[in-house]
Write a protein that binds this DNA or RNA. Structure first.
Ligand code: MN
Ligand code: MN
Ligand code: ZN
Ligand code: ZN
Lengths: 144, 144
DNA sequence: CACATTAATGATAATGATTCTCATTATTAA
DNA sequence: TTAATAATGAGAATCATTATCATTAATGTG
């Protein structure tokens, strides 16, 4: 089984917090790790239920919060409102090209833009803690 | 009374759509125009009720949609989930510096960043329809 | 292993934002 | 003034997410 590194991180996190392990948490973690998609809690829940049909909504949300706290995942939201989750561990910061046709998210980074964002903030006396940039449009595939 | 231009745009829009005028719509429009803040529907509703206490929630949402369709306002959402509305007519595209301490939004534009965003999309064969960029952190005032 | 302690779970209720439904009222053009 | 029809507001419905709580499972100890 892969993801030993991530599993170890989560195990350590759980132990250090005085929490307990559970089959549900393991199922959710592995299902999350197995996809590189940007899933909503509901989409992840559907996937996890293939592995363990009894898992409840609340447990998915609760575990997602723990994954966030342990540094394994990151929550963000597009303009559609629902929260989405993506891998954080071993993934550099990046922004997204969001296709309004197929819904796919392409991950991109432009160091020049990142630099200019810092300059822009500095010029306004603003201390950055994070930023987000999304470009909406039609992806190459969908344009044919 | 100011905002003649915006009022004419809205009147034309209503007429061309075969809709009707109403005191409520006028109250909501004027209240919206009078602030330069980035309000949620609920915040706007509170303000409008000072002018007309009987106005209902649904009417605020319905009118906000019409303002959007007529080009007078733009909906967007920060990472907190709730939709916010800002003036669109007579306002250039801009991005936001979002202060996590006082909640203030500062409007900014950097033509160099805008240009690099286009280049970035082009490089990926992506056809842009819009984009959003938000920088989160602490504003000058809040840093003391 | 048996037990006590305490965290985890899942069903379900609750919440907050937004939309829908519908009976009533207001606007408009004739 | 009237007939046609759009607009309104109250409240129900919806959707994503969180809270509550009785029950179950995990953990450390003897
Ligand atoms: Mn991503
Ligand atoms: Mn703005
Ligand atoms: Zn696409
Ligand atoms: Zn501030």
């Amino acid at each position: 089984m892969a993801f030993e590194e991530e599993q170890r991180i989560f195990d350590d996190f759980v132990r250090n917090k005085g929490l307990k392990h559970s089959g549900q948490r393991r199922d959710i973690l592995l299902t999350f790790l197995k996809t590189e998609k940007h899933l909503t809690a509901d989409e992840l829940h559907r996937l996890v239920k293939k592995r363990n049909p009894a898992i409840g909504t609340a447990t998915v949300y609760r575990t997602l919060r723990l994954l966030g706290e342990s540094g394994l995942c990151r929550e963000f939201r597009l303009d559609d409102g629902a929260a989405r989750y993506e891998h954080l561990y071993g993934h550099e910061h990046h922004d997204h090209l969001v296709c309004k046709s197929c819904g796919n998210l392409e991950e991109v980074v432009d160091p020049k833009i990142e630099k200019l964002q810092e300059d822009l903030a500095k010029k306004h006396g603003f201390k950055i803690s994070s930023h987000k940039m999304e470009i909406y449009g039609i992806c190459r595939k969908c344009r044919n």
